[in-house]
Design a protein around this nucleic acid. Structure first.
Lengths: 297, 297
DNA sequence: CCGTCATGAAGAAAAGTTTCCTTTGATAGC
DNA sequence: GCTATCAAAGGAAACTTTTCTTCATGACGG
């Protein structure tokens, strides 16, 4: 795989994240924009509306939902991004099918995964990330909620923080999570991790934490999903939706990437202590390794 | 293709060449476009006219002189070129340092992560993968060993297999792992996951499983590490080792990618059952989601 | 049956384009 | 020296298209 790599333009990525929160007609518009971004930039609002089987009104509404002032702005942005993207699309976009041989499967998975990571990184709001890092760095304690697949990410985060000497708990049991949330206050930070942003177990505990005064940070793929309404800060991933399979893992990797960014940010902010903490914890498991000693893991 | 030099935007160059042949008022327009190309793309024809101390008519005439059909076309072109010029890539290879700002950190992490995934995928031995898939698909039961960071991957794998109705256990406790390994036989498969390939806890159980007759599959970043000596089949990741940090997560993502490939391979081999199993398990959690709501500003 | 939401039709406003007229200045004929 | 003629430049205003707003309608959940 001699790969260049061109993460899809930011606007497109954002549109994808917004999809579920859009009405059907708006979704059709979004689809056209996502699928033919370059062309779309050249269309008038009327043309675009027609192509989406919808009305100008709906197009405008879509623009607003995307955070643009109007159609011209969307158009301009699209054009600028089209100029940047050297149109070098891979044929590997499709979902995995029953008939794919293993080599293709590997290719598709790798493609989806790598893209999710890159696009997620490119759309991270650094300002928000900065705030999140501040919060975590200054928190008395960090609670992390996530169930199912997101539970892994939560636990991973907990362990990371733990390794640099920060107090953190990951909860995936709804009751325990709620109990823990009830004990938080202003000095604490709560993380809610949910790909769809609709997982009620996670949201319940997360919202409770907010009510108790803790600062709340949501991590989701969908910037307008329910969880974001009870969050002070929102970090988003950018995994494309896929039907059969690859999606699940891609979203996981995207989440892990974001978490890693937060973690490194925090670790950096407290470099001296961190170094020591990492060294100490690393040394602790060193005795459990046999043979050649080389990297860290 | 790292350092592709940007040619100055073509339109601007052309405008400059055209200058002498333009009438004074048109020249003023040209000047504005040349000097503030990026901004100009955002102006309406009226604004631009005003800024050039001229009229819309003149702006149009300038557009025609430039060979454009009208103002919108000029504007679009300008925007596209502005977009292209902005993007200039920096070297993102190095390790994260104390002085990196958050934006750089994010970039570097994403780069390392995405690269690990891509490189891992491209070096996977499909033949081996094929065998592994066969083994897992035909196994009576699958044991997965991994401690520390690799424990996440192990658990993830277990959960995946579980979801498609395959019996699997992930062990990260040495004693439990050994106990479980002792119960395996020819019909079973054992996975040993260790980034360094030197984790004795994992290797112990893994080797025990092998002695009991189970087929053994190792997943490691180092093809010659101790764990590979007691494995029937070896899958490797390709995370570059890095000093401070980014490495840890990159290796994790690489492992997950490989696991995902194995999983999809197995799922595919048993498509019908898989579909059903996935549908059922998905439906089971559906009730735990709250309706994605649409919001509008 | 009510309120809320999604949607497009219709019309207002803004942007873009064309037409046409004024100004200016150069040239030529008386 | 004084008009008449013409051409180039440029903008006012009329016109067209595009964008945006308002509002009525019908669908849907409660």
């Amino acid at each position: 795989m001699t790969g260049r790599k061109q993460p899809a333009a930011e606007t497109i990525v954002r549109a994808r994240g917004l999809l579920p929160s859009l009405s059907p007609a708006e979704q059709r518009v979004a689809r056209v924009v996502i699928d033919e971004a370059a062309t779309a930039a050249g269309l008038t609002i009327t043309d675009l509306a027609e192509r989406a089987g919808s009305s100008e009104t709906t197009v405008i509404r879509f623009c607003r939902a995307m955070g643009f002032a109007g159609y011209s702005q969307l158009r301009l942005t699209l054009a600028a991004e089209a100029g940047r993207t050297v149109s070098d699309e891979e044929p590997v976009g499709s979902d995995i099918s029953e008939s794919d041989d293993l080599a293709q499967v590997v290719k598709k998975i790798a493609f989806a995964d790598a893209r999710a990571v890159e696009e997620t990184a490119s759309q991270i709001d650094i300002a928000v990330l900065e705030q999140v890092v501040d919060l975590v760095a200054g928190a008395r304690r960090v609670d992390i909620y996530g169930v199912g697949a997101s539970a892994f990410v939560a636990t991973d985060f907990q362990q990371k923080l733990y390794r640099i000497g920060r107090i953190a708990y990951a909860w995936s049991d709804t009751h325990l999570a709620l109990t823990s949330a009830a004990l938080l206050d202003e000095g604490d930070v709560a993380f809610g991790i949910s790909h769809t942003g609709t997982t009620s177990d996670t949201i319940d505990a997360f919202a409770e934490a907010g009510r108790r005064g803790a600062r709340t940070v949501a991590l989701t793929n969908f910037p307008k999903s329910p969880i974001t309404r009870v969050a002070d800060l929102v970090l988003t991933t950018a995994a494309r939706e896929t039907t059969f399979r690859s999606g699940a893992m891609a979203s996981r990797l995207a989440q892990l990437t974001v978490i890693d960014c937060v973690f490194v940010g925090v670790a950096q902010r407290t470099y001296a202590e961190t170094r020591t903490a990492l060294d100490v914890t690393y040394a602790a498991v060193r005795g459990r390794r046999i043979g050649a000693e080389r990297s860290r893991g």
